[in-house]
C-alpha cells in the first residue's frame, strides 16, 4: 500500500520537479563530468548511493539535530559517508577507487545532496526520505546521461568508448562522407548549452513550467 501511495516521490523528480532543470541543483557536476557517457553513469550511481543513504541517516537524526548547527551536521554526514566509502575502496578495491577518486570531491560539494537533506529529509520519515533520495538521484541521472550521450556522440564520435560512427583517422563509417567530430561539444560551455536545450524541450512540452 504505502509503496504505491508514495510512488510520486520517485516519479516527480524524473520530470516536473527535476533536480537539475527545475530545482537548479547539482549543476556543477552535471557540467564537469558529462564529456563521457561512462563518467556520467558512474557519477549517477555514486549520487544514487550517497543520496539514498544520506537521506535516511538525516531523516533518522531529524529530531535530535539542533537547528542552529544543522548545516554543519548535514555537511559532516555527507563528508563522513563519502570518506568512509573512499577509504574502504582504497583498501579493498584499489583500481575501482582510482576511477572514483575524481568524483569524491564533486559528491561532497554537490548541492543536490544538501538541497534534498534540507528540503525533505529533515521533515520526513526515513522510508519516504529514502524514496525521495532515489527519485531525485534518478532525475539527476537522467539529465546527466542525456547530456553525456550527446556530448560523447557528437564530440568524439563514440559511445561508452566504442566507435559508433566509424574511425575518424581511417575515414570509415560516416567519416568517409566528410563528417568531422565537433570537438567543441567536449568543452564545458557546450554542456551548459545542452542543458539549456533540454530545459527548452521540457518546457515546450509542459507549458505549466514556463517562467514569465
Amino acid at each position: 500500500m504505502g509503496l504505491f501511495k508514495d510512488s510520486n516521490l520517485i516519479t516527480d523528480p524524473l520530470a516536473d520537479n527535476n533536480p537539475i532543470t527545475i530545482q537548479v541543483l547539482g549543476i556543477c557536476s552535471a557540467l564537469a563530468i558529462t564529456a563521457e557517457l561512462e563518467a556520467s553513469i558512474v557519477m549517477s550511481i555514486a549520487v544514487l548511493f550517497v543520496l539514498g543513504v544520506g537521506n535516511v541517516v538525516i531523516s533518522l537524526m531529524r529530531n535530535i539535530i539542533p537547528s542552529k548547527i544543522r548545516i554543519i551536521v548535514q555537511l559532516i554526514v555527507v563528508a563522513t559517508l563519502v570518506i568512509i566509502v573512499d577509504l574502504v575502496l582504497k583498501a579493498f578495491a584499489y583500481q575501482l577507487s582510482k576511477t572514483l577518486s575524481v568524483f569524491v570531491g564533486l559528491i561532497i560539494t554537490n548541492c543536490i545532496i544538501m538541497g534534498r537533506f534540507e528540503a525533505f529529509a529533515l521533515a520526513n520519515r526515513p522510508w519516504r526520505s529514502f524514496l525521495d533520495g532515489i527519485g531525485n538521484s534518478l532525475g539527476y541521472a537522467m539529465i546527466l546521461i542525456i547530456v553525456g550521450f550527446f556530448r560523447e556522440l557528437l564530440g568524439s564520435g563514440t559511445l561508452l568508448g566504442m566507435e559508433v560512427l566509424g574511425n575518424p583517422i581511417d575515414k570509415t563509417g560516416v567519416y568517409a562522407f566528410g563528417y568531422e567530430n565537433n570537438g567543441f561539444m567536449l568543452l564545458a560551455p557546450m554542456a551548459l548549452v545542452t542543458v539549456g536545450i533540454i530545459i527548452w524541450v521540457q518546457r515546450s512540452r509542459n507549458e505549466a513550467l514556463i517562467e514569465d
Partner: peptide
C-alpha cells in the same frame, strides 16, 4: 521563445560567456 525564458536562456548565455 516562451519555453526558453528564465532558466533556459540563462544556461545558454552562461555557455556563451564561458566561451
Amino acid at each position: 521563445p516562451p519555453a526558453l525564458r528564465g532558466l533556459g536562456i540563462t544556461f545558454i548565455i552562461t555557455g556563451l560567456m564561458a566561451i
